[in-house]
């Protein structure tokens, strides 16, 4: 009896780890392969059959991509837009999140529902009319214009995520600070903010990812001042394969880093997003 039990246990463990590893391979394989493709020579793109080990490692393709016209500018643009998006959505959204977390007020349910609904809107329905408006306002082909749309897209998420973060800071701490001589703002700055900072940083990174990856609005709203995804997308059909591989890999790298940085917050950020 004990031996059958332990055999069942071992069998269970084996299938557990086997399954887990299989799924990990499924997730990692494309990442490995695109890295392999991006770090081969340009000629190797047309080689067939391809090697599965980095036998001809080369930065030739990446060099070509980075030196292509508009790429470095687009990377810079992407970073600027993402930073503007972080700043804008946190400055606008965090106070709202705080209000939802701390106060009971008339209209709160309505606002929460509104946020929920505004996350539903397709990017297209925002970007197309805004492209038309921005043309009139001279915001077309400007990074500000793209950042505004990205803020609009990120804002509902940021409010909900920051509300969750502020709920996690006990109200008592703020109140005790008030009895110890702080006004509301001081209590927030000295007590709530330091405690919320890791969560807010994670929210900022999350916002960066939204902006860094966004392609539809960025392409529609720009012509020369492309962000990186817009740059890659607009030239997708008439650029060589190795250019695309390098571009794809380039876009993926920050994702890997950021997911690692905010791994502790994964479930809070993405998991509860729809609530």
């Amino acid at each position: 009896m004990p031996s059958t039990l332990s055999r069942r246990y071992i069998l269970g463990r084996v299938s557990l780890y086997g399954g887990a590893i299989l799924l990990a391979l499924w997730t990692l394989a494309p990442l490995y392969l695109i890295a392999l493709a991006a770090f081969s020579t340009r000629q190797a793109t047309f080689q067939w059959p391809k090697p599965f080990l980095p036998t001809d490692f080369s930065i030739d393709t990446m060099q070509f991509f980075v030196n292509s016209r508009g790429v470095l500018d687009s990377v810079r643009n992407s970073i600027i837009v993402a930073l503007l998006t972080i700043a804008g959505s946190l400055v606008l959204g965090a106070p709202g999140g705080y209000a939802l977390a701390r106060f009971r007020f008339r209209g709160k349910e309505g606002i929460s529902l509104g946020l929920l609904i505004s996350k539903m809107f397709p990017t297209a329905i925002l970007s197309i009319p805004l492209a038309v408006t921005f043309l009139q306002l001279d915001l077309y082909d400007s990074l500000w214009g793209v950042a505004l749309v990205h803020i609009a897209m990120a804002l509902p998420f940021v409010i909900i995520v920051t509300a969750g973060i502020f709920v996690g800071v006990p109200r008592d701490l703020e109140e005790v600070a008030q009895t110890l001589g702080c006004n509301r703002l001081q209590a927030f700055l000295r007590v709530v903010l330091p405690l919320a900072l890791p969560g807010l940083a994670a929210a900022a990174i999350f916002t960066f990812v939204i902006s860094w990856n966004e392609v539809f609005a960025a392409t529609i709203l720009t012509l020369r001042n492309r962000t990186l995804p817009a740059q890659v997308l607009s030239g997708l059909n008439d650029s060589p394969l190795y250019y695309r591989y390098a571009g794809g890999f380039f876009m993926i790298v920050p994702a890997l880093i950021f997911i690692f940085l905010i791994r502790r917050y994964l479930l809070n950020l993405w998991g509860n997003i729809v609530r």
């Binding site: 006990p170 008592d172 109140e175 009895t179 110890l180 001589g181």
Partner: peptide, 16 residues
């Protein structure tokens, strides 16, 4: 609260 010259101990302690 800060103008009342009070000090308070909370049930949760509310230690920072």
């Amino acid at each position: 609260p800060r103008d009342r010259r009070i000090a308070m101990v909370f049930q949760s302690y509310a230690v920072f």
